[in-house]
Design a protein around this nucleic acid. Structure first.
Lengths: 185, 185
DNA sequence: GTCTATACCACGATAGAC
DNA sequence: GTCTATCGTGGTATAGAC
């Protein structure tokens, strides 16, 4: 069996967490090397550049979202899928209040640089919008994309405010509002 | 008459724009020096550190918001004040779609670093929330802060999506929704 | 494949002439 | 007050021994 290198995985995991905590630019390869237990010079055996490692991290995040999607798609009713989706930010509420949303904050950051990774990071947020839009479409709603955008924008906005205010309860408030909105739609 | 140095103003203006365009960390003092026409070494005559210049920029932004508040407070009806407030993101729609919200993106960025400026940047976003909350309170609504948070979170979220999708029309959509929400409240 | 040592560069900050 | 030259630090990336 061809199994991917352990060190490669460890590097991606460490980078994933550090990028969430500190941002991409602020996270140095030395940080990642230390956190993953891989010597600095050895990082370049697995990834040619820092950007290449960033690309792998974003790929892992997209993969992670796809896996989550599968669990929500077990629900037959698209309304239930959306309500299932809304459980995620509730579970992560303390993390979101501390660090903001990993997807949104990376998009913000990379849009300010002129980084080659920008469009890849964007695609993760876009995947959230597209998945939500599909559920609204399955519900037979007109303008499903407007609804999908409203849903994701609300979550992004409240993540930013929760981390700025250092208060996770604003997430609960907004999720409550969104749940009611979806039920009444 | 004691007038503040022209160069000092130019530095703040250039820094303000560059920080909006590129983010704080990504913006170098060399960038700011070039853009403002002030030689690099001379920057330190006006600001001891880069953080000190950042602090002046945030102060200018807060001052700018206070000035805008005065124009909205000409309306007697708090509902009209909120509707006046919502004109701002509409006017800035193309800028928001290109660069995101200057206030929100700076909060995001500084929260990832452990920068001394973080709490100052936060106070600008907080000012937006507080002002909105006051209007809802003046309308006699229960839980005015929840409403204020919803308003600002919506704007922040849609700014992020507009810049990620590169599409200003999502701002129009969400503002339309918010206007109706305020009118029916 | 693994690791140490280091080249190289960019940036914040300072020294000091004018 | 103004400006040039430069120091020191810390980051990405590479060379090359094992």
């Amino acid at each position: 069996m061809v199994r991917p290198s352990r060190k490669r995985e460890k590097l991606i995991d460490a980078a994933n967490d550090l990028i969430y905590k500190q941002g991409f630019r602020q996270t140095t390869l030395a940080d990642i090397a230390r956190e993953s237990g891989v010597p600095l010079g050895n990082v370049y055996y697995y990834f040619k550049t820092k950007d290449a490692l960033g690309e792998a991290v974003i790929g892992a995040r997209l993969e992670d979202f796809r896996t989550r999607c599968e669990t929500w798609e077990k629900f037959k009713d698209p309304r239930d899928r959306l309500l299932g989706f809304l459980e995620m930010p509730l579970e992560l509420r303390n993390l979101l209040a501390e660090r903001g949303c990993p997807v949104g904050s990376l998009c913000q950051e990379l849009h300010k640089e002129h980084n080659a990774l920008t469009s890849q990071a964007d695609s993760v947020l876009r995947a959230h919008i597209d998945w939500s839009t599909e559920q609204f479409r399955a519900m037979g709603k007109p303008d499903p994309e407007t609804l999908g955008i409203h849903l994701i924008a609300s979550l992004q906005g409240v993540s930013l405010l929760a981390s700025t205010l250092g208060d996770a309860s604003v997430i609960d408030q907004e999720i409550k509002r969104l749940r009611e909105w979806i039920k009444e739609l």
